[in-house]
Design a protein around this nucleic acid. Sequence first.
DNA 1: TAGATTGTTAATCGATTAACAATC
DNA 2: TAGATTGTTAATCGATTAACAATC
Lengths: 206, 206
Amino acid sequence: MNKVPIPTLERLATYLTALIELNCRKIDTVSSSDIEQATGINAAQFRKDLSYFGEFGRPGIGYDVEELKARLARILKVEQAQRVLLVGAGNLGSALIGFPVLKAQNFHIVAVFDNNYNKIGRKLWDLEIRDIAELAEVNTELQAQIGIIAVPATAAQQVACKLVEAGVKAILNFAPAILRLPEDVVVRNVDFGQELAVLAFHLTES
Amino acid sequence: MNKVPIPTLERLATYLTALIELNCRKIDTVSSSDIEQATGINAAQFRKDLSYFGEFGRPGIGYDVEELKARLARILKVEQAQRVLLVGAGNLGSALIGFPVLKAQNFHIVAVFDNNYNKIGRKLWDLEIRDIAELAEVNTELQAQIGIIAVPATAAQQVACKLVEAGVKAILNFAPAILRLPEDVVVRNVDFGQELAVLAFHLTES
DNA sequence: TAGATTGTTAATCGATTAACAATC
DNA sequence: TAGATTGTTAATCGATTAACAATC
């Protein structure tokens, strides 16, 4: 399990989604080329990706959907429910809490924080919005390891530091800001503006 | 301008964000190592990325912030306002319309569509939610080239086809689904579940 | 057994980084 | 001129794909 490439991990999540789908359709065995069919990812790539984690299939037969699904979920640590802290009770934060996909994938937002006194104390869906100052304290109880940053870019670095202080080890950052954090904290950035810019590049002059 | 790597385009957007920031701070000249400082991206990488598009700096001096910013915006086609169609008037759609970053980066959501008759005709912010069936018709007027899919995964493929029919050439897809589309249509997928799964992988057993 | 498909090694491809001559 | 920094070529690194022996 030595140094798994990030693209491999991303694809693992894609395979898992495809397997859940296949499982629903009562398909119980698949070959690597079936996976290529379903995901668009090269069959050799799929086998190579799995090889980082051991052996999963049977030569001449293929893979057991149910089993592979379970093992991938285990590798990605999504079979156990993961607690997630959300910072930022704006539109995006609200959308994330209400997003069915996250719960379906076993990620549970267990607390929301904001620094706006007009929001603190109010409810966002079924969660009370708490003061960002209480973050560390609240998390001594909750022990969440994942945090989501859904605040303006100007506040992002500061929020990130607070999350790390509170014991968070992995951060999903929606603010268009470059976060400087300790080596042992993993960050993934989602930047809608960047995504749209890459798309716009490909357009012909309008 | 032959075959620019996707990672280069993504970084271009990052440079642009950094340059806007530097410009605000009244800094008017930067070197590639200043950019490395600001973005964490290797200075040689930065120069290499620019080299796909021509010459931008002066040896011994560096780059003019104002000029570089303008030229990058032009390359990414974000100096001109881009019209964007949104499909899906749920929480995520609502968050996207209300997201200040998009407008700031010159992306304007000009129409929202849904298939839910309880929503059609209502307003989402200042936009009337329209019937998805009218998509192509509405876009003969608007001529938007970018579409955003913010619907459940089960509906994503169908929506994508409708967008393409309506003349959209670039799609930002938030549904965890693999879209099959004509070669000349560009797609970028944003999958929150996948992002969180990659993060969860890096956690130690809890 | 013959056909299918795996897991893995080797070959290819592409992207990142380093080095340096050109030049301000 | 001397020092700084570019743009680009070449070297390194890593990821993808192809090929194939092993095996069901």
